[in-house]
């Protein structure tokens, strides 16, 4: 087991942590709002994965006229992709929260376990 990789690739470890914490929250908490927060943490892990994979030491921004012929330019594509993915994530959160508001007005609870009991009685 190469321990060095833990220190040189610590950003990927944060990605893995965010993904697992997010997935765990999504599954484990009975609170619907916290489930949505878990979903957001999970997605942040993915965003970080794309951004961190695009990092180049000594790279310069890909703007015409910047740097000389020997400069390493950073690919702008991952950042653009993640901007799109963030927009998608915000829309998903908005729809999820709207649904939760409806569930709360209907059943008066945000707790999944209580919700299950109430609906079983219907």
């Amino acid at each position: 087991m190469n321990v060095d990789i833990l220190f040189t690739h610590y950003n990927y470890i944060v990605v893995a942590l965010l993904l697992t914490i997010g997935a765990y929250m999504l599954v484990e908490t009975p609170n619907l709002v916290k489930k949505v927060i878990g979903m957001n943490v999970f997605q942040s892990g993915i965003f970080l994965f794309f951004i961190t994979s695009a990092y180049r030491t000594g790279g310069s921004p890909p703007i015409v006229g910047h740097g000389g012929a020997s400069t390493t330019y950073v690919s702008p594509l991952p950042h653009v992709l993640i901007l799109t993915a963030i927009v998608v994530g915000v829309s998903l959160t908005a729809v999820a929260l709207a649904l939760i508001v409806r569930i709360y007005t209907e059943y008066g609870t945000l707790d999944e376990r209580v919700l299950r009991e109430v609906r079983a009685d219907e």
């Binding site: 999504l26 999970f42 997605q43 993915i46 649904l99 409806r102 569930i103």
Partner: peptide
Amino acid sequence: DDGRAAVGALKYLLVGTVGASLFLIGIG
């Protein structure tokens, strides 16, 4: 119109988002 549809939709959203996110990691 009822609460059941909202609960069904939220469950669909949470599971569906995880699915789409896994797809996105795969693309990554």
